[in-house]
Simulated assay, not measured.
Amino acid sequence: MSAAPPRRRLSPAVYRRRRIVLLLALLAAAALVWVLIAQPWRGASATAPDPTPTSVQGGVSDLPVPGTSTPTPSGAPTPEGTADAVPSPSAAPSDTATPTAKACMARDVTVEPLTDQDTYDPGQNPQLSIRLTNAGSTDCTLNVGTSKQSFLIVSGDDVWWRSTDCQTEPSDMLVLLAAGQSVSSAAPLTWDRTRSSVGDCGAGDRQVAPGDGASYHLSVEIGGIPSTQSKQIFLY
């Protein structure tokens, strides 16, 4: 019986080619597994950009308006533009916006309640607004959205009306206030001269505020900063 011929030894070049082919196959398999697990094509839609402050411009008609649902009581004047008010659009962002500005400090911000008149005849409804001033020396950011606004009307110790009692669709709006800048409500909020209540936001009768020269005071709050003084009005 003759012996089997010896196996021919492969050259080093053949071994190198085989190792290269094997390495490429392993890399291709690893890349396929990464694509299936990581799903990089979802990155753009899954990652939301960080919110940046909107720079308010000019000084008037910049703050959004809280929406309220206020039924018309029997015998009361008809509200003008109060029911389901829609927040006004904010001013267009400015190229000078500074997203890195710090939050406003209460000591640097002045909040004032405003009304369109001091006295109101029968049938006239008070129009309420807010003026906000950055009295500090640096720019700062503040949430002035309708979720952070509050209008309060009292007569003595008697609370007559809160804008938050029947507020609809509150929202947030972060703005950049330049040093020394003042901004005001985009549109006034109407008080229909009735008593508000959290439990009476639908159809129904509300108590009408007395007139005949009765005195009422308006206080406001925005961004967690209350007004330091109230605004007095008289109803006839």
Rank of each mutant, 00 (worst) to 15 (best):
V183F: 02
R8D: 06
N143V: 08
S155P: 01
R206E: 07
V21L: 12
S90Q: 13
T72I: 13
D95K: 08
L114S: 03
S227T: 02
A103W: 07
W34Q: 13
A28L: 14
L235A: 00
A91V: 09
P79Y: 01
K231V: 06
P40M: 03
K102D: 14
D108H: 10
W41V: 11
A38T: 14
G123D: 05
G59D: 02
S215K: 15
P12C: 10
S150Q: 09
P188M: 05
D108S: 08
D165T: 04
T141G: 01
A46V: 09
L10P: 03
L174Y: 03
M1R: 11
P12L: 02
V154C: 01
S90D: 08
G211E: 04
N134V: 00
G224Y: 01
G136V: 07
P71T: 04
L24C: 13
D205W: 06
P122G: 11
A179S: 12
R18A: 14
V154Q: 12
G59W: 03
T100D: 05
V60C: 05
Q167S: 13
L32S: 15
W41P: 05
T133G: 07
P5I: 12
A30V: 14
V159R: 15
V60A: 11
L36M: 07
W160V: 04
L36G: 14
D158Y: 06
D118P: 09
I225E: 00
K102Q: 15
S137R: 12
Q149D: 01
V109T: 08
A106W: 08
R19M: 14
A92Q: 14
G136I: 01
V21M: 14
A187Q: 10
T100H: 09
S227I: 04
A186V: 06
S61Q: 13
P226A: 03
R193N: 12
W161H: 07
P93E: 07
A28R: 06
T98V: 14
V111S: 06
D121T: 15
D212G: 09
H217Y: 10
S185G: 10
R18H: 12
A48K: 11
N143Q: 07
T82G: 11
G81E: 11
L128Q: 03
A92D: 11
P188Q: 02
